[in-house]
Design a protein around this nucleic acid. Structure first.
Length: 287
DNA sequence: ACACCCTCCTGGAGGC
DNA sequence: TGCCTCCAGGAGGGTG
């Protein structure tokens, strides 16, 4: 499942190969992948637009476009669980890949670019969505601060935690509160900070909030360095898997040893999500 | 304000 | 081997 580090890795690659490419033709095979506008407008308005750059906001990928008409658009993508972008240029070793992708039943949208390049959107579970809007804020305007941004330090996180009285895990997963964290990195950050996923956010004191902020930063930065975590289907646009899975301390490690205390990792449900933690390092709150 | 449940989807895993 | 059921989950929507 692509979270901030995975989306960041994808965006960095896309921003290397896509700028100045013009979209020649758009082919959508699974119409529901397009959220807005209606499919015919989506294709018509995309065709002929030049890609200026690719950036990330939270888990959203934003393609800044530079159309010929006055209406500059933004193509915005959310990969949800299994979405992938795959980039192919003709005349390279990617030819075999491109042929396979053309036939791939999980490829739901194809952007043909000038010249000879193609961007495929592939998504096994079809949860991902594409948006074409004039104002990116209509999609990403409600997001909380970037966890690696300058606006979020330990103090700011402390304030956020004390603005709510929620369980810490669902709070950190809430994109309106902080943008970009998902199930894997929240579990990892809470383990590093020694905070139980059910702790009430407003019960976390100032030093703990600073520790948690540092943990979030460490977990995300090292995952970006490893180009993301590949649990199932995640890969970058060149088809490479990430390498961060070997660095995970708790996620997906139920019953295995905690790297810190060597006790057994436990898995519980928190807010309908599988949540991994160490009962010894992250003691259950008495609250 | 917050918890909880449902929906969207499919492939993979486990049971028998 | 094969079939069936269950499970994974990001986000949005609805309910209590």
């Amino acid at each position: 499942m692509p979270e901030l580090p995975e989306v960041e890795s994808i965006v960095r690659q896309l921003d290397e190969c896509l700028p100045d490419k013009t979209i020649r033709e758009v082919n959508v095979r699974w119409p529901r992948i397009v959220d807005r506008p209606k499919l015919s407008d989506f294709c018509r308005q995309l065709e002929g637009q030049r890609i200026r750059g690719v950036r990330r906001r939270g888990k959203f990928i934003i393609f800044d476009l530079d159309g010929t008409d006055a209406a500059a658009h933004h193509l915005i993508a959310h990969l949800r669980m299994t979405g992938q972008f795959l980039y192919c240029r003709a005349g390279e070793s990617s030819d075999a890949t491109a042929v396979a992708l053309e036939e791939d039943k999980h490829v739901h949208a194809i952007l043909r670019l000038w010249k000879e390049a193609t961007l495929y959107y592939r998504d096994v579970r079809k949860f991902g969505r594409l948006y074409l809007v004039k104002d990116a804020a209509t999609i990403v305007g409600d997001l909380g601060p970037e966890p690696l941004g300058e606006n979020l330090d330990g103090e700011a996180l402390y304030d956020i935690l004390h603005d709510h009285r929620r369980q810490i895990k669902p709070l950190l997963l809430d994109q309106q509160v902080i943008a970009g964290l998902g199930n894997i990195y929240v579990d990892e950050a809470l383990w590093r900070a020694g905070i139980h996923p059910l702790r009430r956010s407003h019960r976390i004191d100032r030093p703990q909030a600073h520790t948690l902020h540092a943990a979030i930063e460490t977990v995300l930065r090292s995952a970006i360095e490893m180009r993301g975590t590949t649990m199932h289907s995640y890969c970058t646009p060149d088809g490479e898997a990430g390498h961060n899975q070997s660095s995970l301390a708790v996620y997906g490690r139920e019953g295995q040893d905690c790297p810190r205390c060597h006790g057994a990792i436990r898995k519980i449900r928190v807010a309908q999500r599988g949540s991994h933690y160490c009962p010894h390092c992250q003691p259950k709150p008495a609250e």
